[in-house]
C-alpha cells in the first residue's frame, strides 16, 4: 500500500519553495493533498543553505518533528552567477555547483532514509533545459543542472526496488524573478512563442509525485515549450 492510498497526507519538502517555480510547486502539492514544508535560506517553514550539510540535517530534523517523515522531496533551490568560463571566478563556480547540485545531494541523502522506511518516496529534481544543451555565460549553471540529471538517473536505479522514484524536470524559460533579465531575448527562440508559467512546471512535478507515476523513474520531463526539442 502506498502512502497516498493509505489516506495519509505525506510530507513534501520543497527547497527554494518560497519564490518563483518553487512557490508554485509548493502550492500545487498542497492543493493535491500533501502536507507541504518549504525550505529556504530565509523565510519558508525551515531555514537552511542547502549547500551546508549540517544546516540541511538540522532542517530535516525540524521538518520531521513539526510535520513528519519527508516522503516527497523537490530539489528546486538554485542560484545563478553568470559569466564566461574564461573569466569566471572560482567562487562563482563553487557557489552555483554547491547549491544547485551538491545541495540536491545533501537533501536527497536525508530524505531517502525516510522514504526507505516507508517503502514509498518521490524525489523530483528541478534541472533546466540548458542541462542537455549549452548556454554561453552559464558554464557553472549548466554543469550543475547537467549533473543533476546524472544524479537523478543513478538514484532512480539505486532505489527503484524500494518503491522510491527519482525524476527530473527541465523547465525552459519560465516567468520568474530569476529570468526577468533573459526572458525577452529568448522568447523568439521558444517554439511555443511564449515563456512558461511556474504553474506549468508545478503540474509536471505534481504528476511525478503522484501514485500514478510509480513506474516513471529516472526520467527527465521537459517543460519548455519545445525549446530543448
Amino acid at each position: 500500500m502506498s502512502a497516498r492510498e493509505n489516506g495519509d497526507h505525506p510530507v513534501a519538502l520543497v527547497t527554494g519553495g518560497t519564490r518563483g517555480i518553487g512557490a508554485a510547486i509548493a502550492q500545487r502539492l498542497r492543493d493535491d493533498g500533501f502536507t507541504v514544508a518549504t525550505l529556504a535560506r530565509s523565510g519558508g517553514d525551515v531555514q537552511a543553505d542547502v549547500a551546508d550539510p549540517e544546516q540541511v540535517e538540522a532542517a530535516f530534523q525540524a521538518v520531521r518533528e513539526r510535520f513528519g517523515p519527508v516522503l516527497v522531496l523537490v530539489n528546486n533551490a538554485g542560484v545563478r552567477a553568470d559569466g564566461l568560463a574564461i573569466r569566471m571566478a572560482a567562487d562563482d563556480w563553487t557557489t552555483v555547483v554547491d547549491t544547485n547540485l551538491t545541495g540536491a545531494f545533501h537533501c536527497t541523502r536525508r530524505a531517502l532514509d525516510d522514504m526507505l522506511s516507508a517503502r514509498w518516496g518521490r524525489v523530483v529534481n528541478v534541472s533546466s533545459v540548458v542541462a542537455e544543451r549549452a548556454n554561453p555565460g552559464q558554464a557553472n549553471y549548466v554543469a550543475a543542472k547537467a549533473g543533476l540529471l546524472g544524479f537523478t538517473r543513478t538514484v532512480a536505479r539505486e532505489m527503484a526496488r524500494k518503491g522510491v522514484t527519482c525524476n527530473a524536470v527541465t523547465p525552459g524559460v519560465i516567468d520568474t524573478d530569476m529570468t526577468t533579465d533573459v526572458a525577452d531575448g529568448l522568447i523568439g527562440a521558444v517554439p511555443a512563442g511564449r515563456v512558461g508559467r511556474p504553474e506549468e512546471v508545478a503540474a509536471a512535478v505534481a504528476f511525478l509525485c503522484s501514485d500514478e507515476a510509480a513506474y516513471v523513474n529516472g526520467a527527465t520531463l521537459a517543460v519548455d515549450g519545445a525549446l530543448g526539442a
Binding site: 532514509d113 526507505l116 522506511s117 539505486e158 532505489m159 526496488r161 524500494k162
Partner: peptide, 8 residues
C-alpha cells in the same frame, strides 16, 4: 541497499 536497511 538491503544492508543499509538492516544496519539502520
Amino acid at each position: 541497499l538491503d544492508l543499509v536497511e538492516i544496519v539502520k
